[in-house]
Simulated assay, not measured.
Amino acid sequence: MIGLWDTTGNEVVKALAAERRSAGGVASGLALTLIAVVEEKKVREAEAAATIAASAHPCRLLIVVRSDLDGRSRLDAEIVVGGRLGPAEAVVMRMYGRLALHAESVVMPLLAPDVPVVSWWHEEPPNMIANDFLGVVADRRITDSAQAPDPVAALRQRAIDYAPGDTDLTWTRITLWRSLVAGAFDATEARVIGAKIVAPAKDPTAWLMLGWLKARLNIEPTMEHTDRSPRLHSVELQCENGDYVRVTREEGTALFSRSGQEDRYMPLPRRAVGDELAEELRRLDADQIYADALGAMAGVAGLDHRLPMRVHVWKDPTLAARAAAPTDAMAG
């Protein structure tokens, strides 16, 4: 590992090039550049997740940590090639002061040549991705609405702000659920006429499951809130011929119930963030099924017809905070 304190972007580029030369073949064959926008307390989590994802998708990992926007501009960087991160190159950049608002000035020269760029927010997702140049420059953008104070509201905002190429780890977390529900109809052609989802009121995965069922089956699922489970608890489908299919989460498994058949247990493990991230990195094109589900959930039509490219819209959060300060003082 190389540590550079109070350095410049040019010095980081030189140090990465030198480390790549010394690492030799370890740094070859990069599949993509992964830009991770992370809170300081989650840097190690992001590194651990990227290590898992890099085992399937060797990448250059650029971790951006923004702090103290009103302080002195400074850049500290750590460079790791191979080693604890496996087949990945990593640059952890801690940016302070006004530099943090222009992270692209340091990040852009570090992008791996001729490979796709993916931006991943391992923190509360931005309200508008166009306000962050690190999202505008990316071919694919991964958020996690579950990290917002109000996850369901954050997921609805993802629909308002959507552009093809966006995705959310909330969607990835119901992959196994969707597989179980869809697999129930491999041996029947009975039409589904209703669905009921049991989950906590603020579980975004449950609402996205509702959107998926609504979009794919052209029905209006109902939501039943519960405090029995911290996550999506069960999904039940009612068929036109009177049959039902129910998938219920138990500890690490799913109880699969179907009218006229014996109950079965199926695997339903809780996956690590790195596994979820690796799944999303398998595809670099727009996910139309996700767009349909998100639009149906939020009541926003035509998401997949929007333009895939965003235009950067500059926003200075420090100015917004200063403008609000006098109002807060008068209110006090």
Rank of each mutant, 00 (worst) to 15 (best):
A163E: 08
A201H: 12
R94E: 09
D70N: 00
A146I: 15
L169P: 07
D243M: 02
N131I: 01
S234A: 11
M330E: 11
T188A: 00
A138P: 08
S67C: 05
V247D: 12
I193L: 05
V38S: 11
Y96F: 09
G71E: 01
A77H: 08
S145G: 14
I289D: 12
S22R: 04
I63F: 15
P269M: 03
V245H: 06
A36W: 05
Y162N: 01
E39S: 13
T205W: 14
P308E: 01
F133S: 07
V198R: 05
W120G: 01
L30E: 13
L30R: 03
R271F: 14
A54R: 00
S257T: 08
R306P: 07
L85Y: 13
P204A: 11
M266N: 06
L4F: 10
E47H: 04
M297A: 06
V13I: 02
T51R: 15
A77R: 01
L303H: 05
K41G: 12
R178I: 04
M309N: 12
L16T: 02
V92K: 03
D161Q: 06
N10Q: 11
R322E: 08
A286W: 14
L110S: 11
G252V: 08
A54N: 11
H57Y: 03
L210K: 15
Y290S: 05
D114N: 08
L319C: 05
Q147K: 13
A329K: 03
A153M: 08
I219M: 00
R231A: 10
A206D: 10
T253W: 12
E45D: 06
D150R: 15
A50E: 10
P308T: 03
A88L: 07
N10V: 14
A278I: 00
D186P: 07
S28D: 14
W177V: 03
L111S: 13
T327L: 10
D139A: 14
E236P: 04
N127H: 15
A23H: 13
K14N: 09
V247E: 07
R264I: 05
V118A: 09
R231C: 12
E40R: 07
L99E: 04
A201D: 15
A321D: 05
D166Y: 00
D243F: 02
L284G: 06
D76W: 09
E220F: 09
V152P: 13
G302L: 01
A163P: 13
A112D: 04
P326E: 09
